[in-house]
Design a protein around this nucleic acid. Structure first.
Ligand SMILES: [Mn+2]
Ligand SMILES: [Mn+2]
Ligand SMILES: [Zn+2]
Ligand SMILES: [Zn+2]
Lengths: 126, 126
DNA sequence: AAGCTTAATGCAACTTTGTTGCGGTAAAAT
DNA sequence: ATTTTACCGCAACAAAGTTGCATTAAGCTT
């Protein structure tokens, strides 16, 4: 389906996810790329990359949208069911390589879980 | 500190939380009360009630703000650390009276957890 | 290499959610 | 009844994200 051309813009955007293991705020990407591309373009590329299983998104406590690299996802199937963690000191958000234990609750059939954790990362706990 | 007057607006707003156990979208409250009060007033009352421990808030998967009744909270201390559940059929969001098992992750000190579950409620599972 | 097709981009205008400043209103204390 | 000030309405604003449309350029085809 979605044919994606590897344009300059796409390469540039992907390069920003490369060096880090942290998630990135959509809004920050737009600010950082202001001189190079339009915010509409940023949003559209993020959408495409998510549909292709290259990145995944989630909302933080304040409702802002975060994006992070996927590991082993495809356009067919996203398997990013892991918790996300934000450090209250450095504000960084990271994907935690831990499995979520989905609780069993009577009268509810739970199919999916989004877990957002808050605390202190190791670098800020000194 | 925050002295809250029991005005007509406050009573009206509280009455909407009374008959249901479900959470309510801030945006829906504003739409529903459009004829009776200004949206600024709605937001301000919601803020106050949350500070007083009468209601608590959380964000849904799309970043929209939900509010629900508290049980046993005060202005001093909120203890609404429970998961929230949204049914994919009826779209209703409810507080689940279940304790969250906060995971232990190496290198991270976790202080708080927001869990948003998605699935089917019992009324929609037929 | 030049031409062609159409996915991708830029831009402006718009939508939605939420906030702020300020003048006026009304709850409640005196 | 009068006074005090918390509360409210309104208008203007702000931030995040979306949409329509004309233009550009990626990457085939020849
Ligand atoms: Mn992740
Ligand atoms: Mn709740
Ligand atoms: Zn940190
Ligand atoms: Zn349902």
């Amino acid at each position: 389906m979605g044919i994606t051309r590897k344009t300059k813009a796409v390469k540039k955007l992907l390069s920003l996810f490369e060096p880090t293991v942290s998630a990135i705020l959509a809004v920050d990407l737009i600010a950082q790329l202001k001189e190079e591309m339009n915010k509409t373009t940023v949003y559209r590329i993020l959408d495409r990359l998510e549909n292709e299983g290259v990145i995944h998104s989630f909302s933080g406590s304040n409702g802002l949208k975060w994006y992070a690299k996927c590991t082993g996802c495809s356009s067919d199937k996203h398997n990013d069911i892991h918790p996300h963690f934000q450090c209250t000191s450095c504000k960084k958000v990271t994907c935690l390589p831990v499995e979520i234990k989905i609780p069993t609750v009577k009268n509810y059939t739970i199919e999916n879980a989004a877990v957002f954790l808050v605390g202190k990362c190791s670098e800020c706990s000194s």
